[in-house]
Design a protein around this nucleic acid. Structure first.
Lengths: 144, 144
DNA sequence: TTAATTTTGCAACATAGTTGCTTTTAGATA
DNA sequence: TATCTAAAAGCAACTATGTTGCAAAATTAA
């Protein structure tokens, strides 16, 4: 399989590596994430899988993938949740996320900009920083 | 009225300035925002006004305040919407927002850090930036 | 004070997400 | 390969959140 993501060679093996049983929904949904350049919402997944899977199954699959560090969630300004594949340095419980997210206001896609690291932020005295989420909005390279 | 925000002297006058009729719900909700150091969710407003106003009224009031540039919304990682007062340079249709938002994981409050400007971000070639949203997560000065 | 306009509250609806339970499927074992 | 067990899927019901249309009430203008 010619994968966009070098760390996922074969879907079944990848699932087994994460101690997940290999089911049709997990394979299909994971495949979607690999083929998709941008992030996906629950509704996208429902549509793109041809509504073959129950809403609940999709919710639970996403939850499982989140917990295993396979995907991460992205907050958006219109308050929907998006999900995108993690890189290999993410693991169960610990999501290592130093990239920023980019929403294209033309094509409405959301991309993880892996090349762009989150900046250093100097907080006012007394604040301690744990995590930083940067969401950029504008026009992507395909729509410019 | 000793206001935390210099640009709002008297609530009724402030509402009239924005061509809004002065109603009980608008006064109460605006007062909440002025007294509150952090941001507010719809549910907070419902509770803090003693459930005197209909859910729909609160939604519509927030919508009106957003449109008039009186408040702005803040996306959160758990996908709820928060609202906070704008500074005086915001106006109808145009929200001028160069500060970052801070979520305290202890007290669960969200603050606008007006002292901390959003950083300069260098996007990959081909991307054009319109808006930048930075949400920091950690411990606030009251909880440290 | 009255009339026109705006806003509120209510009911009904829509959408997103959750939970409990039963059936089905996957993986292990004989 | 058949059988057993554990995990996952599907279904129904429910909750939370947000929206829309409309009648009643409140606000503003005359």
């Amino acid at each position: 399989m010619a994968s966009r993501l070098s760390h996922i060679a074969k879907i079944s093996d990848f699932l087994r590596k994460h101690k997940l049983s290999v089911t049709e929904s997990r394979k299909q949904i994971l495949k979607l994430f690999i083929e998709q350049p941008g992030a996906l919402a629950h509704a996208d997944i429902e549509k793109k899988t041809g509504e073959r899977f129950d809403r609940v199954t999709i919710y639970r699959t996403l939850q499982t993938f989140l917990e295993k560090g396979i995907i991460h969630s992205i907050p958006t300004s219109d308050n929907s949740v998006l999900y995108a594949l993690c890189k290999e340095n993410c693991s169960e419980g610990r999501h290592v996320d130093h990239h920023i997210h980019f929403i294209c206001t033309i094509c409405q896609n959301t991309y993880c900009l892996d090349e762009t690291n989150t900046p250093d932020i100097k907080l006012p005295k007394g604040y301690r920083l744990n995590r930083l989420e940067v969401v950029a909005e504008g026009t992507c390279k395909n729509c410019i």
